[in-house]
Computed example of a mutant assay.
Amino acid sequence: MTKHTSTSAATYSTHRERDSKMATKPSEISSVKMFGGYNKRFNHFSPALGCSMTFSIYFPSSPSPSHKFPVLYWLSGLTCSDENFIIKSGAQRAASIEGVALIAPDTSPRGLNVEGEADSWDFGVGAGFYLNATQEKWKNWRMYDYVVKELPELLRDNFPQLETSKASIFGHSMGGHGALTIYLKNLDKYKSVSAFAPIANPSNCAWGQKAFTNYLGDNKSDWEDYDATHLITKFHNVSTTILIDQGEDDKFLPDQLLPRNFEEACKNVNVPLQLRFQPGYDHSYYFIATFIDDHIRHHAQALKLS
């Protein structure tokens, strides 16, 4: 795979735009009632990414005007936007019951028109891999900073009904990879983590190798900073059980996801992990919708204990 080292004029222009702008106040795009609460979608300018971004929030029905909801971030997988989870998962029912707000960001910058950004479904647009790219061509791909720093600050400053200091994180596939790595590197920020079919050892699969080579370069030691199987050996002071569900009929299981590698790494450092293989289930949102209530309860318990 070709390593990109040059930066286009358009990218430099984007950098200047990013550096000269502050994050804008979120503008509401839509609002739909569900299980007594509301799915709301917002747009804002992101200085971290140098473009406009959308994100979705599910607000449960509030018991009082002063009530604050803990937040649960969902990170979606390859090709997804912020809407896939909100529309397909059915997570709102359990979130409403447990009193947890769901936050679903997009999966990459959009609209930058970087050459090659849409050439394949597993890299570029819709495939940010929740890292901070270091290669010049892809320097706007800073989804790690967006999820960990910018978005929480934006929520704190604009949504008083959210208790952003109480947060957990979960995700699917590429987003499961993002949830695991972000959690392990920020144990002080998140109360719990879970994942559906995560890319658990991206340094050793084609999806991860393609993304890491382009975003981070050829030095494989740099890849370890975004690989949960490697990170667990460094950040293993984990007391809350990590929950992972994996469909046994997932066609990506043998070559791309590699959960057994993560399981072995957790065993080596005594990190509590509940890895559940679900017979007959695949990689789709049918699988996610089936077990989403378990994950919501897993996080709600951790958030209530915090």
Rank of each mutant, 00 (worst) to 15 (best):
P160S: 07
I169S: 02
W138M: 04
E150P: 07
E163F: 11
P279C: 05
P109L: 07
N113I: 02
A289Q: 14
C266K: 04
Y130G: 01
S20I: 03
I169Y: 05
F291I: 04
A228F: 07
S52R: 14
K137T: 03
I242R: 01
S8D: 13
F35L: 03
V238A: 11
T7N: 08
F69M: 05
D294Q: 11
G37H: 05
R276F: 13
E115T: 05
I296V: 14
T107N: 15
D250Y: 05
T54C: 13
S89G: 03
P272G: 15
A94L: 09
I199P: 01
R41I: 06
A101E: 04
Y58N: 06
I169E: 04
I97N: 08
V193Y: 01
E117S: 10
C205N: 12
G178P: 00
H298C: 08
G175Y: 06
S173L: 03
K166N: 11
H298K: 14
F85G: 11
K68T: 13
Y146R: 01
I169N: 02
E224S: 12
G280C: 06
L273G: 04
P109Y: 13
N158C: 05
L258I: 03
I244C: 08
I103Y: 05
Y130E: 08
H15A: 08
A94V: 12
R16G: 08
T11Q: 13
K189Q: 10
K191M: 07
T229G: 13
K220D: 06
V147H: 07
R297D: 08
S239E: 14
H236D: 09
F262Y: 07
S64P: 10
N261S: 14
G99M: 08
L112W: 00
N140Q: 12
K234H: 14
G99R: 02
F69W: 03
H295W: 06
L231P: 00
K40L: 09
G111M: 10
Y144V: 00
D245S: 12
S96N: 12
K149C: 10
M53K: 08
K210F: 09
F35P: 00
G247Q: 06
T290P: 01
K234W: 10
K139T: 11
R142V: 08
I103L: 05
S20P: 06
S61N: 13
T229H: 07
E263I: 02
P160K: 02
M1K: 10
L273H: 03
H67C: 02
L162S: 08
F45T: 07
R260S: 12
K33G: 10
F212P: 01
M34Y: 14
N132F: 01
I242P: 01
E224F: 06
F85T: 04
R260D: 14
S192E: 11
P202Y: 10
R142N: 14
E153D: 15
F59K: 12
W141I: 04
K33T: 10
S31L: 02
V125S: 05
I244G: 04
F291S: 12
V148Y: 09
D106I: 13
I97L: 12
R260T: 15
A23H: 06
